[in-house]
Design a protein around this nucleic acid. Structure first.
Length: 645
RNA sequence: GCCGAUGUAGCACAAUUGGUAGUGCAACUGAUUUGUAAUCAGUAGGUUGGGAGUUCAAGUCUCUCCAUCGGCACCA
């Protein structure tokens, strides 16, 4: 007879099998009312689940984190029921819980409209109001297939057929409506908190395959209570405010236009950010032993055929024809780097050879994939290729990881996610090669004591890779850095070196990038900092403001002193009140505003104000410059505010 | 590329059932000489994304192309 251990360690003895709900009732009627599901020996189950043996049990209520997934999954079911009641003939397919909510994919000729969402939501409220008990049934495969076939649910039939033999087929029924589902579910529809909202309609391929027909997906968000829902909606609004496309326009950083889809027109302010990053990287590459090179944009198609890109990515390359010759605009830099490597006979003494290029590339991405600076057709990578021996892979990867950490920290990204992608089914190179390369990458990560996740089979056909992703301040993950081993291309493009025994060898090539593309990286920076870039990256670092025309000359002098010291300073000498200037400059997120009036002019000082409204008082110009230079040089680690305190 | 939505002044948005395209901010002109997030007044600004069609009449309806947005798929 079951002896049930609760999370607080207390035990309850029963002389007969009990359901989760019965245990909850035994503890208290309040808990029974709140119970949404149970967790038996760490497995989520329905409240109707019958416990026959000794077990550990926790009762899941809306307060538990685990409840959210149940709530979301139920919301998906309730939505599906609502849709089928409102729009007969619509077929259901799948509808899982996802981060922040849920979706359900429907098959229906006529598209859903935004108005439909309101109607569906209203019907969902009604279904919740009906408080239909949700009951689990187990059916045989034949019964399940037969039943769904009879009601015309062809997709469900396919889903059932795909369930492995021997696995139980469970059906969840709420009122007249039922669905095949693994569960668990809430005890009744009335338990679903009315803290959901349907968000958007989207197309989605059946089974995620673009060869299949497209279904209609409805996304919703669902939470344990209205407060959480409100908070989430508020967060979405906040995220929208930091959208790099919006900030890019507001701060006059760049624009894009119809005539050049997926390509960026950088304005002077945005280009200043770009140049600052490029110069920073150039300096870093130099200290880390890279040689910077530059290679052509347009190359005869035959090189891309030889490298293998034409057959694999030909459709995504921009082609150019001239005097009966076919060219392609380069989609990547590696074949060009091999051409540089191939000039002159290389010795093992030349290795490792690290060739870097701020390589401008063009890829004809599908129109639907474009997204602001994040996914473009024309971009520049902080690209480099390291030519080395197999023995040098691990030390090179290790050095690279140090380099990458240095850079990410300077940009203010502290949380990095590491993923190692290993051999895919279709690949070149011997298993022994792959063994050694995968081990070299894993060892380098381990050597740094870094936590990493293996993505089995996700490597490129030519070699394994590590992907480095950053987490921004609102928790979104962006893949930027990469380190890829390549066994294939050096051989295809005839790269050789002479080893210690005077024999010709093919070098290993490592493809690597830290920022990825400048465009994307700048987009990430803008969103991470919500437009308030650290001073060292800010296009305009300081603006001097005069109070009246009397102080114009002094303000100009101050600006000149700043510019002299390499500070990006402007002067706002407009005939406007300083309240207006401060407002506008603050909204432009200019880090420092220097006020020049009578007092400052007399004492040769400036009054310093930050873009966040902190008045730092007045100080001699020289003192301000020294402190600012320190903040810039330290990449924001030494802040002026802190230097004062 | 696929599904859906959207495209109006530099920007953010209006415009009843098809009936003279407006408002705010910005811009420009003038006044104001101002002390820490919006001084006041005036002026100008548009073939409504491109093309075609229906109609006496199209921002509004239809077709088509383009771009953008949200997803899906893709991402060397």
């Amino acid at each position: 007879m079951p002896n049930i251990t609760l999370p607080d360690g207390s035990q309850r003895q029963f002389d007969h099998p009990v359901t989760v709900m019965q245990v909850a009732r035994d503890i208290g009627s309040g808990l029974a009312g709140a119970a949404l599901a149970g967790k038996v020996d760490n497995r989520m189950v329905d409240t109707s689940y019958l416990i026959t043996e000794d077990a550990e049990l926790s009762i899941i209520t809306a307060k538990n984190a685990e409840a959210l997934e149940l709530i979301r999954h139920d919301a998906a079911h309730v939505m599906a029921q609502a849709v089928q009641e409102l729009y007969p003939g619509t077929q259901v397919t799948i509808g899982p819980a996802i981060e922040n909510g849920f979706y359900y994919d429907f098959a229906r000729e006529q598209p859903f409209t935004p108005d439909d969402l309101q109607k569906i939501e209203a019907r969902m409220n009604e279904i919740v109001g009906r408080n239909l008990p949700i009951e689990r049934e187990e059916w045989s495969r034949d019964q399940a297939i037969g039943t769904f076939q009879k009601i015309g649910e062809e997709y469900k039939v396919q889903i059932i057929k795909a369930i492995p033999a021997g696995e139980t087929i469970s059906i969840y029924r709420q009122g007249d409506w039922f669905d095949v589902c693994r569960g668990p579910h809430l005890p009744s529809t009335g338990k679903l908190p009315k803290a959901y909202k349907l968000m958007k309609i989207a197309g989605a391929y059946w089974r995620g395959d673009s060869n299949n027909e497209m279904l209609q997906r409805i996304y919703g968000t669902a939470w344990a209570d209205k407060k959480q829902l409100k908070q989430h909606l508020h967060q979405m609004e906040e995220a929208e405010k930091r959208d790099h496309r919006r900030i890019g326009r507001q701060q006059n950083l760049f624009h894009m236009q119809e005539e050049a889809p997926g390509m960026v027109f950088w304005h002077d302010k945005g280009w200043t950010i770009y140049k600052t990053i490029e110069n920073y990287m150039r300096q870093k590459l130099h200290t880390h032993g890279y040689k910077e090179i530059n290679t052509p944009q347009i190359i005869d198609y035959s090189l891309w055929e030889k490298s293998g890109h034409a057959s694999k990515f030909g459709d995504d390359m921009f082609a150019v024809k001239s005097e009966d010759r076919n060219f392609a605009i380069k989609p990547m830099n590696c074949p060009c780097h091999i051409q540089v490597f191939n000039q002159g006979l290389k010795s093992y003494r030349d290795l490792p050879l690290r060739l870097a290029e701020f390589g401008s590339c063009h890829r004809n991405e599908l129109s639907g994939a474009l997204h602001g600076l994040m996914r473009v057709r024309g971009f520049t990578q902080d690209d480099a290729h390291i030519f080395c021996t197999e023995q040098q892979i691990q030390p090179e990867v290790s050095r690279f990881i140090d380099f990458l950490h240095e850079v990410y920290l300077d940009f203010g990204f502290e949380e990095i996610i590491y993923r190692l992608s290993t051999r895919p089914e279709q690949r070149v190179g011997s298993d022994a090669d792959w063994d050694r390369a995968e081990k070299a990458l894993a060892d380098a990560l381990d050597h740094h004591g870094l936590p990493w996740e293996e993505l089995s089979g996700e490597g490129a056909f030519y070699g394994p890779k590590i992907e480095f992703s950053m987490k921004d301040c609102i928790g979104r993950v962006w893949q930027c850095g990469t380190m890829q081993v390549d066994f294939s291309m050096p051989g295809r493009l005839d790269a050789h070196y002479i080893d210690e025994n005077s024999e010709k060898q093919v070098p290993v090539m490592l493809h690597r990038a830290i920022l990825g593309s400048f465009e994307r990286f700048i987009g990430i920076l803008i969103e991470h900092y919500a437009g308030s870039l650290p001073v060292w990256l800010s296009p305009v670092q300081v603006t001097v403001i005069n109070i009246t025309s009397k102080h114009e000359e002094y303000a100009r002098q101050v600006q000149a002193m700043l510019v002299e010291r390499g500070i990006r300073a402007e002067a706002d000498l407009r005939n406007e009140k300083i309240g207006l200037k401060i407002r506008e400059l603050s909204m432009q997120r200019i880090p420092f505003q220097l006020i020049a009036g009578d007092r400052e002019m007399e004492q040769k000082t400036v009054s310093v104000r930050t873009r966040n409204g902190t008045d730092m008082g007045s100080m001699p110009i020289e003192v301000f410059i020294e402190r600012l230079v320190q903040e810039v040089d330290s990449h924001g680690r030494t802040k002026i505010e802190e230097q004062i305190q």
